[in-house]
Amino acid sequence: MPVQIRVPTPLRRFTGGADVVTAEGSSLREVLDDLERKHPGLRERLLDENGELRRFVNIYINGDDVRFLDNLSSKVKDGDDISIVPAIAGGR
């Protein structure tokens, strides 16, 4: 089930500059696994050594923060819109 993933600027070096990519999976964890297969290097930026979402990374499924859903176990369905958003606005 393909879902659309919006990629922030700091991670676009892994997607060939693309700001939107697609991946498949029925949970967020599966989607991120598929994303890593297609764009190696992304997973390490998003997940820590324990496989959990890094503290400074926010992921939204259709606008909902996954920390208020089921984190990486959150269900994903065909056509969902996933956004990866750095927790900070950067700059000064």
Binding site: V7, T9, N58, P86, A87, I88, A89, G90, G91, R92
Partner: peptide, 30 residues
């Protein structure tokens, strides 16, 4: 500022009477 700036910062800025224009959080400070 990017829309994902911290809530406190936005409120402090607005408390001084300034106007905030939000940019795409996916594009960061640039």
């Amino acid at each position: 500022m990017a829309a994902n700036a911290s809530r406190e910062r936005k409120k402090i800025i607005q408390a001084f009477g300034a106007k905030i224009i939000y940019s795409d959080p996916l594009e960061g400070s640039d």
